[in-house]
Design a protein around this nucleic acid. Structure first.
Lengths: 175, 175
DNA sequence: CGTGAATTTCTGTTTTTACTGAAACAACTG
DNA sequence: CAGTTGTTTCAGTAAAAACAGAAATTCACG
């Protein structure tokens, strides 16, 4: 598949940002490609379009599947696996938040709880203990909040956020 | 400075998670150390406590300052620079969100706008254009929302979030 | 089962990033 | 302003991550 100029730019940019977001370039590029394509692509097609090794595509697709950001579909009369992603940006956002939370936040919450449950905590400075407690409390609140957000349907969420933004904007003007 | 066991665990864990959060280990460790210490530390003290090179500490402190996560303070009768961070976890959160947004989101918003303003966009598939538009719209809403959050005082934010979580929990029970 | 297409796994290479130690630089002190 | 302390820069090294290509495996289909 030959990418048109704008699509190519989008895919390449997404790939670059991927590094900053903690996913490797190829993974991010493939996801961008699937998103823009809006139809299932097979691995060979992805390989040619992006100009990377076939094995790299395979590995990256595995990673996307682990994030629930890509799924396998089969087209009748074609033995090959094809891959697609949601074209709903809100849906994608929810999946990414869920993934990041699981990988980046949950382990920390566990570690902090272990710190606080450890009897040795009594030997630490009061300030230390207090700050660890506050950090854990903070993380737990954030987790609850993200749970709430992930539960809501995208459209609802969008409206809520849009409205709340408008409201606070109004407040600012008046205040 | 000798770290007590729990504090050491916290610092090391923070360092490990740092990698997943897109900051390098040393930077994350230093920040954790400053946070737990709750008082200004000089570079030498940090070097000894963490067991890394002095130059590494210098570079990392520069990076923390670029994030507004550390600032220099001077103690009377001491020529050395000392460094401290906020011990207010909400304040830290705001700074981190602001930094990430600036580095990870804003460039993408710019790139997407450029894509859509480019006349060549007319040669692209309708689906492609539409999805790029939706993505940009999404990013803009999220930016507005984060602006709102960053403006609110931490305590207010915390209460709002806490309450909203409780409300939706209640709704779920009844629904 | 045997064949060939499709896919994954594995090994080694390349690229990138983090880090160290030494040297240069800057700021203060007597 | 010479000596001392403190800080940053820089060049080289080490560690980690991404990637390519080949080999191995899986699987549909006869």
């Amino acid at each position: 598949m030959e990418l048109k100029p704008i699509a190519e730019r989008f895919v390449l940019h997404w790939g670059e940002m991927g590094s900053r977001w903690g996913v490797n370039r190829t993974v991010a590029q493939i996801h961008a490609l699937l998103y823009l394509a809006g139809r299932p692509l097979d691995a060979e097609e992805i390989t040619e379009t992006l100009g990377v090794a076939r094995s790299n595509v395979s590995t990256s697709l595995k990673e996307l599947q682990a994030w629930n950001l890509a799924r396998v579909v089969h087209l009748r009369g074609d033995r090959r696996d094809h891959f697609e992603t949601s074209t709903d940006i809100w849906e994608l956002f929810k999946l990414i938040v869920a993934g990041r939370r699981q990988r980046e936040i949950d382990p920390t919450a566990v570690a902090l709880r272990e710190c606080l449950e450890n009897p040795a905590i009594d030997d630490e400075d009061d300030g230390t203990r207090q700050r660890i407690e506050e950090t854990l409390k903070f993380i737990e609140i954030m987790c609850t909040l993200s749970d709430e957000m992930l539960r809501i349907r995208p459209e609802t969420l969008m409206k809520t956020l849009g409205v709340s933004a408008k409201i606070s904007k109004t407040f600012r003007k008046k205040g």
